[in-house]
Amino acid sequence: MTNNFCSRRLALGLLAKACLGCTFWAWGSLAHADSVDLLAQFMKQARSGRAQFTQVVTSPTRPGQVARAKNSSGGFEFQRPGKFRFDYRKPFVQTLVADGQTLWLHDVDLNQVTARPQSQVLGATPAALLTSASDLQALKNDFQFTPEPDRDGLQWVRATPQSPDGQIRSVMVGLRAVPAGPELVVLDVQDSLGQRSLLTFTVFETNPLLPASTFVFKAPAGVDVIRP
């Protein structure tokens, strides 16, 4: 009995060491992955997500002017393919919902809802980059992806729209390699007019169970609905 017990303990110990070694090997491989590969892993693994965000929008300035930044914050959720929700809470309440067919923008202060077909307005945008496809290959008709030097403890990918005529000039994606899988931390967007929008995500949850109602939008009673 004693010999059998000792043999079982030894076998379990060896198995635990083997599994631990596999875990560290996988984490080490992830930590040293090329940033484009890391983005591909994020898109493959993160079928849905939820996070808090802050957004800083800086407009281009003329010589002698001081740059002015507009700050906002709120919550973000997404589910592939093609569904996402931004709930802006500060400084103004706005809701942006993509249900897979229609992009809805509800501006509470204006008491107005704008509805546009997603296929016409998303295109090569950061939202499309994050939510429209489940793998990087499917986006290569819209974006060119190049690795950038690591900085601020993150790995960076530059996504450049293939079409030079769009509103977006480039999107820098900042990712953190953690044992649970790649984590989205920053989107740094430069548009064709020189405006910069910096989105920083915190408390990021990968693959949460999101109810279907998350991506259903119904215009409140009495609100004007505009369909350009």
Rank of each mutant, 00 (worst) to 15 (best):
G64A: 04
A67W: 04
A40F: 02
S59E: 13
P60K: 00
K83I: 01
H32R: 15
T58Q: 08
K44W: 10
G75C: 15
R47C: 14
G75E: 15
H32Q: 15
F42L: 09
S59I: 05
R68T: 13
T54M: 06
R47N: 14
Q55M: 07
H32T: 14
R62E: 13
K44R: 12
G82H: 10
R68K: 14
V36M: 02
A33V: 03
D37E: 12
Q79A: 10
R62T: 07
S48G: 04
F42N: 02
V57T: 06
M43F: 00
A69P: 13
F84A: 11
A46W: 01
L38C: 01
D37G: 11
A69L: 13
F53S: 02
H32S: 14
R47H: 14
R50D: 12
A40C: 05
A51T: 01
G82R: 09
N71W: 14
K70D: 15
P81M: 08
A46E: 01
Q52V: 05
F42Y: 05
S59V: 08
S48I: 03
V66A: 10
Q52R: 09
N71F: 15
G75V: 15
V57P: 02
G49W: 04
R80H: 05
Q65P: 11
R62W: 08
D37A: 12
D34P: 11
R50S: 13
G82T: 00
A67C: 09
T54I: 08
S72L: 09
P63Q: 08
G49H: 02
G49C: 05
F42I: 03
R80T: 03
S72Q: 08
M43E: 01
S73M: 14
Q55R: 03
V57W: 02
L39I: 08
S59R: 09
A69W: 12
